[in-house]
Design a protein around this nucleic acid. Structure first.
Lengths: 197, 197
DNA sequence: GTCTATACCCTGATAGAC
DNA sequence: GTCTATCAGGGTATAGAC
């Protein structure tokens, strides 16, 4: 937890960690209070309720995709296709670092919240869309010829699909090889597309 | 809900529905009682606790993969590769039937339960493995030549990965096209593999 | 803006008659 | 095996002094 955060940000940061570790429903407001060292009165001064903390967390994720996820993954990688796999490699690190319990926080929330209010659902899809858009830009920059103009986006979506599925299986089996295999099959698919040109 | 079920099975069946609709944590024991028309005393006569109801549900899913999922999907389809896509088409039906809120119950539980007890985790992976094994048999029966002997299993796992990712995205965006695109990309990949022989 | 104390409800689970 | 009534605890959220 970064030092010198103001009260509101301490709440958001603690909630972000906890929602990732235990999910939204399993995290109590009391959990957030104790991790953030904030009192109940202060949390409810900034947020009408727990749900609104979730909204702030999802906005923070969305804003952080560039600086917190892509830039660290890409700072020493410049080839656009390599960047896609560097991004996936970042997820592999997270899996290993968490003893194979990592779940993509967005994907986990998307499946955990069965009837989220529309604002939550919108932010979940915005997060996915931002990720897809970043990958799509790599694909477009790669010189991949697009037979119909929409393939880069579809392939980017498929890349997200594969990542999410791979993370889910790796977590369920507590074994990163399920993620590795997903990535390796995806790479084969990429190769087959490049070879077809 | 099937009529004439005994008390224990009514509990399991109601819980299976509710866990699928709302997840495990959002389903209260009171929810299970009211849907199953069973009293608290009876539920706790058969099960030590809510967790044990979940175990029974997961065992029921595992036992039902053949009769409840594969057989209906495959009764008019005999080509082994077509069977794989008929299975995926079954998930598409579920997505559409639920107004794009369908989540694979196993996958959803796998992401919802962050620290499941070992028995739960084992049943989750058993469910996945049974699904993978069924698909793997199709692939092996298809005459697909296996360069290293393990590709059928890996491709079956990748098929599950794609299904789970596709279901997650379709649900998040509330749009079946995300599932359709995942399946269509997977089909392309299959084609590229067959073409390489 | 921050603090403590507390209201009030719903949760999983139990007791004990039948 | 089934029933009703109930418990103890933790959940979100609020009140009101500072």
């Amino acid at each position: 937890m970064p030092a010198k955060l103001n009260t509101r940000d301490r709440v958001v940061f603690a909630a972000m960690e906890l929602f990732g570790e235990k999910g939204f429903q399993s995290t109590s407001v009391a959990d957030i209070l104790s991790r953030s060292k904030v009192n109940a009165g202060s949390l409810y001064y900034y947020f009408p309720g727990k749900q609104d903390v979730l909204l702030a967390v999802l906005e923070t994720y969305c804003a952080g995709i560039g600086p917190m996820l892509l830039e660290p993954a890409w700072n020493s990688v410049h080839d656009p296709i390599e960047r896609v796999f560097a991004l996936l490699a970042r997820y592999r690190e997270l899996i290993v670092q968490t003893n194979n319990t990592y779940g993509c926080p967005i994907g986990s929330l998307a499946l955990e919240l069965h009837e989220p209010d529309p604002a939550v659902r919108e932010l979940l899809s915005k997060n996915f869309s931002a990720w897809v858009s970043a990958v799509e830009k790599c694909l477009s920059a790669s010189g991949l010829r697009l037979p119909k103009g929409t393939n880069a986006k579809k392939l980017a979506i498929f890349t997200l699909t594969t990542m999410e599925g791979g993370v889910m299986l790796a977590r369920t089996y507590r074994d990163p090889k399920y993620f590795d295999d997903a990535v390796s099959q995806l790479k084969n698919y990429y190769k087959s597309i490049f070879a077809s040109k």
